[in-house]
Structures are given as C-alpha cells and as structure tokens.
Amino acid sequence: MSTLRAPVKVRVKDWFPPGHVRTPFFLRGKVGVIERELGPFHNPEELAYRQKGAPRKLLRVRFEMSEIWGEDAETPTDTLDAEIYEHWLEPADAT
C-alpha cells in the first residue's frame, strides 16, 4: 500500500465486518486527505482476539465536515481528523 502517503486523497472502505473494528461508522465511505503517516502498529482487529496483530501502517486522515455530514454540516469547512489503518483505505479515485 505504498501509494498511501500524505497528502494523497483516500476513501475509507465501506465495509461492515463484525469484530473489534476501530474505524468509526460515520467515516465509512468518506473521502479525506492523508494528513500524516504513523506506525506501523499492531492491527487491533487481531489483537482483540489474542492474536499477535500484524503490523499495519496507521494514517491520520483529514475530512471536511461537508464530506461527512453533507447538507447537515454545521460549518462545512471545519475538519475532523481520525486515525485509520491502511487496510481500510483506498485511493479516492479507485472504483
């Protein structure tokens, strides 16, 4: 996933798997820009089940409120930053 670098535009995958997932529901399917690269950290989805947790790159992604809340955004240009693991992200232009 070497294409996931700041400041690439990315989309959070619209997945809804069961288990211990640290990708907030309200950000799934949303497009943001990588703010900085972090990690790698052990994948919490595996750690939660007593597995070792494969190292995954963690990325801080910045979303505009208009992207998250659409017409309901309080101030469209305010932002929300969240940490998303690389396997939850794809380039925004991917279909």
Partner: peptide, 15 residues
Amino acid sequence: PDDVQVRVHDSTADM
C-alpha cells in the same frame, strides 16, 4: 468566531 476554523481530532487508534 466564524473566521476560526475548528479541527476535531478523533482518537480512533494509537495516538
């Protein structure tokens, strides 16, 4: 004020 941008930071993982 409106000209101050608000940035919310959601601690979703290891930070």
